[in-house]
Design a protein around this nucleic acid. Structure first.
Length: 416
RNA sequence: GGACAGGUGGGUGAGCGGUUGAAACCGCCGGUCUCGAAAACCGGUAUGCCCGCAAGGGUAUCGAGGGUUCGAAUCCCUCCCUGUCCGCCA
């Protein structure tokens, strides 16, 4: 949620920052928000005055009622006051409802250090020259992936992993969970895979992106990422654990990806259901830039252990998620398709999600609560990682070697 | 899915429709005492919004939303959630 006080205090800065997202309609949205905010404050002041009047009256009336009763004139006067208050209240309520509805559509302003062009920060490993087979061919030959049968069960975009493919998926999940819990200090979580509407609103998927997610007839939503349930673990809380606090969760992820047809439709690159291990961090506001770097490093470590050459880029202000203030993409090289595949997105949300989900911390005992900063990164997403893994570690005989870090989990050093 | 019982501050738990943001206890913070600690005692301990440079003031909040009333934590309605039993199941 956008910070209304900040918008009030420095409208020019907020507008300038949001303008960098490149959505011209935001100007009008902000105009409306500011007007409603002003109206709300005026009404609140008037209403509070009337209520103060009523409270004073109630005190003396209580005494009067005990000793002799209230005169009909007094009762009539009080009733009139009450009616005025009710009228103001309903007007105020309407404005607040509209204001909130509008405010929920305002995205997070990008941080000042976010560039206007995508910028490559660093890379690791030596990408193999483009060549070899794409992962869908390898996978089909090896019998580890069955896309046609997945389509038979659920439609296109729902893969079936078979045999060593299924084992590889399970191995990756366990490997990543172990790495992050044992070496990076995360607490493992297994959350619900269906969540309520207000939870989806807390992290920013709703109300704006309802078309992109799956909804059940009970008005529950299939999680598009573990970020949603895990970040909301602390919704409406003043976190009483030491910060920073990190959680890691494996969940399947469900995305409708409406309108995505035609792009990356081959193989595992863009699908409706996929597995992901997600990292979520909560920290004090001052710590979030350093936490963002640390978090990104945790995701990178996965790729290094898997011996997958990758690169890290900062996304430009007009090309990252609604709730994020800054995002790094981790892209693994996939020589078979000759593309860098986004396997992790690492974002800081500043206090945007904390504000929506009302997640606070108390800096010190007795001090005022303040909003935390939330961050998350895929650590990492499976299908594209599997694609990069198959294509990178493919051998001339058609087999695929398993990187040493993964061998104990897969139970073999070669998929053939 | 059916039948009951409940939802009060960080926790436990009081609260005849009337000056209740809300007793008490626990916890937490500070102080006294002590060489230090414990115990004991004293004091302080919610959050949002609005006005204000601040000090401070106003207002709201007893699951949520409506309603009755001059006045609601307390009465009525709807919804949500939790617990117990039954049914069904993994």
């Amino acid at each position: 949620m956008i910070d209304l006080k900040l918008l009030r205090a420095s409208p020019a800065q907020v507008r300038a920052a949001l303008a960098r997202r490149g959505d011209p309609s935001l100007t009008r949205l902000l105009d409306e928000i500011e007007a409603l905010d002003m109206k709300r404050r005026t009404l609140t002041a008037q209403l509070d005055t009337l209520k103060a009047e009523r409270n004073d009256a109630a005190k003396s009336d209580a005494l009067a009622a005990k000793s002799g009763g209230l005169s009909t004139a007094t009762v009539a006067e009080r009733r009139k006051l009450g009616e005025r208050i009710t009228g103001f209240e309903s007007e105020l309520r309407q404005i607040e409802t509209t204001l909130e509805a509008k405010a929920l559509f305002a995205p997070n302003p990008p941080l000042p250090d976010v560039p206007d062009e995508q910028t490559l920060l660093r890379s690791w490993g030596t990408p193999a020259p483009k060549g070899g087979k794409p992962h869908w061919e390898l996978a089909e030959t090896l019998g580890v992936l069955d896309l046609p049968r997945g389509a038979k069960l659920a439609g296109s975009g729902f893969p079936v992993f078979m045999g060593l493919g299924a084992r590889l998926a399970r191995a990756l999940i366990n490997f990543m969970l172990d790495l992050h819990t044992r070496e990076h200090g995360y607490i493992e979580v297994e959350p619900p895979f269906l969540v309520r509407r207000d939870v989806m609103t807390g992290t920013g998927q709703l109300p704006k992106f309802e078309d992109d997610v799956y909804r059940t007839t009970d008005d529950l939503f299939l999680v598009p990422t573990a970020e949603v349930p895990v970040t909301n673990l602390h919704r409406d809380e003043i976190i009483d654990r030491p910060l920073p606090l990190g959680y890691v969760a494996y969940t399947p992820c469900f995305r409708r990806e409406a309108g995505a047809a035609g792009k990356d439709t081959r193989g595992l690159l863009r699908i409706h259901q996929f597995d992901k291990v997600e990292l979520v961090r909560f920290c004090r506001a001052a710590d979030s830039p350093a936490e963002h770097e640390r978090l990104t490093g945790h995701a990178e470590e996965v790729l290094r252990r898997l011996e997958l050459p990758y690169r890290v880029a900062v996304l430009p202000a007009n090309d990252f998620g609604f709730a994020a203030a800054k995002t790094y993409d981790l892209e693994a090289w996939a020589p078979g398709v000759g593309q860098w595949l986004e396997v992790s997105s690492s974002s800081t949300f500043t206090d945007f999600q904390a504000r929506r989900a009302n997640i606070r911390c108390r800096p010190r005992p007795g001090e005022k609560p303040e909003f935390v900063h939330t961050l998350n990164a895929s650590g990492v997403a499976l299908p594209r990682t599997i694609a990069a893994l198959l294509e990178t570690h493919q051998q001339s005989d058609g087999s695929v070697t398993v990187p040493p870090a993964l061998v104990p989990y897969v139970g073999t050093d070669r998929i053939a």
